[in-house]
């Protein structure tokens, strides 16, 4: 069950989106996120939903798998919606229950917030689903490399991220194993209030941390054995080249921008 978490996992493929240069995809994702925060009406979101749906289609990954990435943020999503429903004033009052008031404005705002979150997670997971972590970190490293001159450790950041991403499935597997082991010893994770359940996590977290440190140590040794010595003089297995496809994809950015801006004025 714990394996269902797919956030940050790569699905190998050969779609148009897969073939895009990672730098372009990162820039696109940033653009997508920033622009998303300017969208504040229904039509703007419709543009975004359609755009995102087309991209998902182009990745040729089953939409089911992409939406599975939403599961871990479900709680956050619910929390946001509830807070927004009750905390936003203005508009017609729909009903009142003690100090809680639900207004049309509140519902609308909560809906938009939820849409924003869903799109945010979906949009960013498209990046990680279609870009192998090495490509992703390559992209980040290249994009950050101009900053290396002012002391930003571009390569180190990229390497840390690759390793973090690489170990997500491994650590999840391990969590699963530890949970089962502790359950077999009579641990109870399901009953009690939140605090009690949080406390019950201790016997999972401690072995998990110990093993993570041990793994880190072994991995560092294995990397040293393979002549790892930082970013200096390193070449790349996959070369990054901006091709026609990448340029074409960028042409759609002003289009999306125009569509979003248009919805603000037209409707």
């Amino acid at each position: 069950m714990i394996r269902d978490i797919t956030l940050g996992q790569y699905f190998p493929g050969n779609s148009v989106i897969h073939r895009l240069d990672p730098r372009i995809k990162i820039i696109w994702t940033f653009f997508y996120i920033v622009l998303l925060f300017f969208v504040n009406n229904f039509w703007g979101f419709l543009v975004y939903v359609v755009f995102t749906a087309i991209i998902i289609r182009l990745t040729k990954i089953k939409p089911k798998l992409i939406f599975r990435g939403l599961r871990p943020v479900l709680f956050l999503l619910l929390f946001t919606v509830i807070v927004n429903v009750f905390m936003t004033g203005g508009g017609d009052v729909l009903f009142k229950f003690g100090f809680l008031t639900v207004t049309t404005e509140g519902l609308k705002f909560a809906g938009l917030m939820a849409m924003r979150l869903i799109l945010l997670v979906t949009g960013t997971s498209i990046l990680t689903f279609t870009t192998s972590p090495i490509m992703l970190t390559d992209g980040i490293e290249r994009l950050l490399s101009p900053l290396a001159k002012i002391g930003v450790p571009a390569h180190a950041i990229a390497m840390m991220m690759t390793i973090a991403i690489r170990f997500i499935p491994t650590i999840l597997d391990e969590t699963d194993k530890i949970m089962k082991a502790q359950k077999a010893r009579g641990a109870d994770f399901e009953s009690g209030n939140i605090i009690k359940r949080a406390k019950a996590m201790t016997p999972i977290l401690i072995p998990l941390f110990i093993s993570a440190f041990r793994r880190a140590d072994e991995l560092a040794t294995a990397m040293e054995c393979r002549c790892y010595h930082g970013g200096e003089g390193r070449t790349r297995f996959k070369q990054l080249k901006i091709r026609k496809l990448d340029i074409i994809s960028l042409l759609f950015a002003p289009l999306l921008l125009a569509a979003v801006v248009a919805t603000k004025y037209i409707f």
């Binding site: 790569y10 190998p12 192998s132 972590p133 090495i134 690759t162 390793i163 991403i165 690489r166 491994t170 793994r215 072994e218 991995l219 294995a222 990397m223 393979r226 002549c227 790892y228 010595h229 003089g233 390193r234 070449t235 790349r236 297995f237 996959k238 070369q239």
Partner: peptide, 26 residues
Amino acid sequence: NPDNQIVATVVEEDVAFGLENLGVPS
């Protein structure tokens, strides 16, 4: 432990890791 010595998330990219460190041309 094979898990603790694989750096990349794709087999061929992991095999290339050492070569990348040595600066072998692509």
